[in-house]
Nucleic acid binder design. Structure first.
Lengths: 344, 344
DNA sequence: GTGAAAGCGCTAACAC
DNA sequence: GTGTTAGCGCTTTCAC
């Protein structure tokens, strides 16, 4: 428990507290020698600035809030998604001397807007990172905007005004995955759509269409099924698709959970993967490496996105860097064992 | 952004700021009528106390730190474990008006003790919740103790002094699982041990031995394999166990990941579960419900444990409640599809 | 480049 | 029951 205060450091270094303050905050206008003296005094006393005092005087909380969909509210195990967001946000906070506040939020609750607003007014973070799919919910975005706190949204941005949005190129990379499957000789490539609430997931369907187009394949309604992002819905869709008379040789699902459902059904039906059926997913969650065969999927740089979002926010409050526009970071295809050449 | 301060509320309510402070903090010695007047003024002005000012004056940070093993450091997907800890800790914090600071920590790094110490001295939380397996690492525990911050450990407690430990009855419940398998007619029950770093996992082996004893089964060295908590090690162990001449009819693994590895191997070897082999795990992670067949396992009330740990810490700082001893919360067996009667 | 004074918005200790 | 007076430990003016 460090009990030294700024006065103690000032006295030991033989300077004023203001100079100590300058050194702590890396401000200019301190001679190098003076700076060194202060640094020594700080080390000798094991001095740590008191954050509350600093925050009170500076009108900053040095807190960033990360708001995401509450995983405990549903069966869907999005834990990996959240951990990776946290990881990136923590990295940015750590480097820049900020603290991270986490807030899972149940968007289906009627009172969610008030709760989120209350949280922000209570803790007064200097910035908010809002993760998908919450970033697509107008009532939540509006509640957050109403607090006047700088906001970065991790989702395909509508560019509406004063906040930055950071997203992946879901559509392009999904097109690429479709082309990859086509390049393996598949000409009946099915797609399993995901929860319409999740905009990024919707874009993957558009990418699938683009990919068909780019590969010179024609679209067929029979090759599209509609899931809800869960493993169970992936199974239902797979059963429908694989019982068609002219069944697909490849299935591309809008997320990994549904792709895992496809694998499970193929297993039950005795359809070998990848010899008779190729399966591809999206997200690269831990499950993608745990299923057998390991799933070919699209990896999103979630942690890097969250880090970027967080540091943009911090740069904004510290240096007044503008916070608007839309940034795109690229996903990557991870080829594993669930995809292979089309059967002859 | 609420800009009203305590003076504004006091003026509007026609009382002194001290009275407002009393109302905010639910202190006694305020007449009900006065209290109501203040409440109205607070609502009218949408007043929120400034946490930094409050913290500075009260010498409390109103922060609880949750420290756990960094999941990004390894392949092991312990995300669900962490999310559930966070969930419980957040619940306690939310109710009691505290904020939660999360800190993943790489215990294999040489500098980990310094890092943890620096974090605590920087943020000055009012209490620390230390999750397993970190709570079994003397160098981390010592570094944390050195800061003088109240500490609760989520692991089998050594009762060493001034901090509380909260743990599950791993040994008893593992014995129960073993007895359950025996009650299904299995008499060759194998066990896969886990990472020795994780003490709770070690206790499960002792529970296995107790269970054999209680069921009147004799122990055999050939029925024990040593894993490291990963899926891969589960596979290796399963291969060894299932190739024995007199192979077991049930395998109990010290965690779910290893049990999932067993299922995968059985699948490859064409051994049907549960008809020819029963498999049981421990932890009830999301994967347990995702594998096929769904895994019989032991569920730990992680979220409840973290909530208890957090509120114990808050009660300690607020009301000076003592913080020592060891509390035990009970796990529960979830019977799913991977266990059944022993083959005739 | 450096320093002195004046708060930031609240709680603590005591008076009334 | 309620109010008054001092700080909490820092940053912010602005003067030098």
């Amino acid at each position: 428990m460090p009990k030294a205060k700024i006065d103690d450091v000032a006295r030991l270094a033989g300077v004023s507290i203001k100079t100590v303050s300058r050194v702590i905050n890396d401000e200019p206008n301190v001679r190098e020698g003076t700076r060194a003296k202060v640094r020594n005094a700080i080390a000798e006393l094991n001095y740590r600035p008191n954050l509350s005092a600093r925050n009170l005087a500076s009108h900053h909380s040095h807190l960033i809030a990360l708001i995401y969909d509450d995983p405990s509210a549903y069966e869907v195990p999005s834990a990996g998604y959240i951990i990776r967001l946290q990881e990136g946000a923590l990295r940015a906070c750590g480097i820049l001397g900020y603290e991270l506040l986490i807030h899972p939020c149940r968007y289906r609750d009627a009172t969610v807007a008030d709760e989120v607003k209350a949280l922000i007014e209570h803790a007064r973070p200097d910035g908010i990172v809002l993760a998908a799919p919450l970033s697509n919910m107008p009532k939540i975005v509006r509640a957050l905007e109403a607090t006047g706190t700088p906001l970065v949204m991790m989702s395909p941005g509508k560019q509406n005004g004063s906040h930055l949005s950071i997203a992946t190129n879901d559509r392009e990379i999904s097109a690429k995955m479709t082309c990859y499957l086509a390049s393996l000789g598949h000409d009946k490539i099915a797609f399993i759509k995901g929860d319409p609430d999740h905009k990024a997931v919707g874009n993957r369907y558009l990418g699938y269409l683009d990919g068909l187009d780019q590969s010179g394949l024609k679209f067929s309604e029979h090759l599209v099924a509609e899931g809800d992002n869960s493993i169970g819905s992936g199974e239902t869709c797979a059963e429908k698709l694989l019982h068609e008379e002219d069944r697909p040789t490849a299935i591309f699902a809008a997320n990994d959970d549904m792709a895992a459902g496809v694998i499970r059904v193929a297993d039950r039906l005795g359809i070998r993967i990848p010899q008779e059926l190729s399966v591809a997913g999206c997200d690269d969650i831990a499950l993608a490496r745990q299923v057998f065969p390991a799933l070919t999927t699209i990896g999103q740089p979630l942690s890097a996105m969250a880090e970027r979002a967080t540091s943009a926010l911090i740069d904004h409050t510290r240096a007044g860097k503008p916070l608007s526009g839309a940034e795109i970071v690229s996903g990557a295809i991870h080829v594993r064992d669930s995809t292979g050449p089309a059967p002859a």
